[in-house]
Amino acid sequence: MATEEKIARFREIAAAAKGTSGSLIPVMHEAQELFGCLDYEVEKLVAQEMEVPLADVYGVATFYSKFHLEAKGEYQINVCLGTACYVKGAEMILEKIEDMLKIKVGHTTSDGKFSLEATRCIGACGLAPVMTVNDEVHGQLTVDKAERIIKRYMSETGRK
């Protein structure tokens, strides 16, 4: 969708939501979904359309970890660091992926392909340790298994 279309679409979303009290957060979810992140231009748009101060939008955006101010990589890798995963060595998996992608947790590779996050429990503790790549959940990980999975994605993107 072109930016103009996205903006028009967002205006519709905001207009429909504005009358409902407490709709700022749902609208911000939609904005992030539509634009990929909540950067200055997007938050300005949210503030304008929802008629709330920009500082409030930003305050909310920086409170909740699901909101991000910058675009994420094409593949968002989330390594679960919930208790069940942690006691089963999730940190080692995280370190391995950091090493593979040459980025630290919380960052995106320079080619914009991968973002790496440590996430709180995703509730798949029975399969600990787990990670997600975009919407796909990978469970019962070992360092080797995680490495294979990431390698697969890397080859998909033609990345070495």
Binding site: Y40, E43, P53, L54, A55, D56, V57, Y58, G59, T62, F63, S65, L69
Partner: peptide, 16 residues
Amino acid sequence: IQAMGRGYNTVVGTAF
């Protein structure tokens, strides 16, 4: 001005 961020990193500041 508004509270920004969360937890120990909370600051009172401006947008962005």
